[in-house]
Design a protein around this nucleic acid. Structure first.
Length: 107
DNA sequence: CCGTTGACTCTTT
DNA sequence: AAAAGAGCCAACG
């Protein structure tokens, strides 16, 4: 089984987040078996796949921490998917998607 | 190879 | 409550 690169793993996990749900940089890093929370952010920042919904990845405290096309855009997109965002913040526990580990996530 | 950077998170002031 | 420090790691020059 070929091991996927770090970034590919991030993208695969991100793609698995259902509409109307979100996940955190931390969860993704953990699912990949690492603590490289920041590297996850870097990967998403450079995300080349438009089918990867990188706007569904947020900070662990329920704050939107960043987005390549602007936080404003990010909150709008989330809102459109049913997430009630207020001032770059929302109730994380209500929308958090628990990642299920899979081989093609990088393991 | 080394130093810097960053869409992070946790702990300690 | 708010700010600063520490730890983490891929990507880039």
């Amino acid at each position: 089984m070929k091991k996927l690169g770090f970034n590919e793993g991030v993208y695969n996990i991100c793609k698995s987040i259902p509409k109307g749900k979100v996940s955190t940089y931390k969860s993704i890093a953990e699912a990949l078996g690492t603590k490289a929370y920041r590297a996850v952010g870097n990967a998403l920042n450079k995300n080349p796949y438009k089918e990867v919904p990188c706007h569904r990845v947020v900070g662990s405290s329920g704050y939107l921490t960043g987005f390549a096309h602007g936080l404003r855009k990010k909150s709008e997109m989330l809102r459109k998917e049913g997430v009630k965002v207020k001032d770059n913040k929302f109730d994380l526990s209500r929308y958090l998607y628990k990642i299920k580990k899979r081989k093609f996530f990088g393991f």
